[in-house]
Design a protein around this nucleic acid. Structure first.
Lengths: 182, 182
DNA sequence: ACCTGAACACCGTTCAAGT
DNA sequence: ACCTGAACACCGTTCAAGT
């Protein structure tokens, strides 16, 4: 099978994510990514600015996964589904997930993700003035949990125990939201 | 002033942390650490196993900071003081703090930190059976918040806004604990 | 015992050159 | 337009050699 020589940014990110999944974030070198695409490392620089830009792209890819398949859910399940989506993404990409907490402020995808949570909170009945803080808090808690799980901080505990931990976090957030609405 | 040539692990960690504080985690190279100690990079290998070991040591140093000066506080303030200690450490060491969430499972200092939170929860009246989960949850939330703050995820918001976010998190944890005790 | 010099394999990145 | 070869400065790490 002849390798396609024409590469693009999406293909570079896909290859990078695959390497991170298989061999960890440290294995994501320009050389390794190029190898997987059948190209020399220098060829990558036409499509990504540099390695930092490549890693930024990786974060964007992960963020886009968070809301996967939550669109056609009833509004009162959207927020919970989003949280589960974050966790699922972390479990699929444990190597790359650490990057998500180091977000470069406000990329387009980060903005989109935030707006989605805003919408869910609005539908929940949270007052407009409380929405930004609720979003920051909820996102931080869920991302912190998922990042911990991905990094193996809960290693040594069974999946059942970790799932119960997450259920407790979900309940906590539920209580918080109930308090905001009351 | 003649440089001291005799180096040790503690001095290496101190120099590494100083570099991380001043120029970020990426600036912590064996060369940079050695330079700061007036020594060649190869000299470090007698005192740290390798770079990963050096970074592990950095995490241990940070963990030890969390409970700084909370020892002689009344028991009902210990937990809150611990949370503030985590945040203070994150603000002192924004470059290195990201490493804390990637903890290598269960180092001595991590165990000590966990036991301290256990004790506070016990004094609070949390049932023995609920303590491990409560510790995991509370530590994860506080570390996630502090890591986000250190990484600049809240950049663009004033210190007052971030402090109010943290106050909301404290209240949330308070509600959670009240629920466990009731 | 502790540090150094020399060396190695591997990084990210640039630039001129090829097609 | 897109990829490559050659080159550069910089990594972490090893090992034999110095004191």
């Amino acid at each position: 099978m002849a390798r396609p020589r024409q590469i693009d940014r999406a293909g570079i990110l896909e290859a990078s994510l695959a390497i991170a999944d298989e061999r960890g974030l440290d294995a994501v070198t320009m050389q390794a990514v190029a190898d997987r695409l059948g190209v020399t490392p220098m060829a990558l620089y036409r499509h990504v600015k540099n390695k930092a830009d490549l890693l930024d792209g990786l974060v964007e890819t992960l963020l886009a996964e968070f809301a996967l398949g939550t669109d056609d859910l009833p509004w009162d399940e959207q927020l919970a589904a989003f949280g589960r989506g974050v966790r699922a993404s972390a479990r699929r990409h444990p190597g790359a997930f650490a990057l998500v907490l180091q977000l470069p402020a406000s990329t387009p995808e980060a903005r989109k993700t935030r707006e989605r949570v805003y919408l869910a909170l609005r539908q929940f009945g949270v007052a407009e003035a409380d929405i930004p803080r609720a979003e920051r808090l909820i996102s931080t808690l869920v991302l912190g949990f998922a990042a911990s799980e991905a990094a193996g901080r809960f290693r040594g505990h069974s999946r059942a125990v970790i799932d119960a931990d997450y259920a407790a976090l979900e309940e906590l957030v539920g209580t918080y939201l109930a308090g905001l609405i009351a």
